[in-house]
């Protein structure tokens, strides 16, 4: 009904004081739950939920977004969404960092080398020769040199 006057809604005093009371209440709750109640891993999400609720109260009533032009709500949501994007996409990396490291041993050349060694062992076993551990040393050294060359 008051479409042309979005910005001029006067937030009633009762709501302002009520929201303030709610914010104080939630602050006390968040301190108590964090300091007195041990929920293990759930403490962090709980605190964030409470903080989110408080922020929502401030945005909705103190900042009067409830009565404001819809486009401002859109803008605010957009900002919020991109914070989530920034956070989650960065966490895709940092939470799984090093997920390649278990594959490190499995370079193609390494696999070939291991297969080669296995074949040699097989042959020696078949021929009844003793398994000479020292024989493998040069192979390892050569492998190390290969990596050194890569580094250049």
């Amino acid at each position: 009904m008051a479409d042309g006057h979005h910005g001029h809604h006067i937030v009633p005093l009762k709501i302002l004081w009520g929201v303030f009371g709610g914010l104080i209440f939630l602050t006390i709750i968040t301190v108590i739950t964090a300091k007195q109640v041990d929920l293990g891993p759930l403490n962090l999400p709980l605190a964030l939920v409470i903080a989110g609720t408080k922020a929502t109260l401030v945005v909705t009533f103190f900042m009067a977004l409830k009565w404001d032009n819809r486009v401002n709500l859109l803008i605010f949501s957009l900002g919020f969404i991109f914070v989530i994007v920034f956070l989650s996409f960065t966490l895709f990396d940092t939470s799984f960092r090093g997920d390649m490291s278990n594959a490190e041993e499995n370079y193609i050349s390494d696999q070939e080398r291991i297969e080669q060694q296995l074949l040699e062992r097989q042959e020696r076993l078949e021929q009844g020769l003793p398994l000479d551990v020292e024989e493998e040393e040069p192979a390892d050294a050569g492998h190390g040199d290969d990596h050194g060359d890569d580094g250049h």
């Binding site: 990396d93 799984f96 390649m100």
Partner: peptide
């Protein structure tokens, strides 16, 4: 050196 998961997604 970022995770492979994020490389694939990106």
């Amino acid at each position: 050196g970022q995770s492979v998961v994020s490389s694939v997604i990106f």
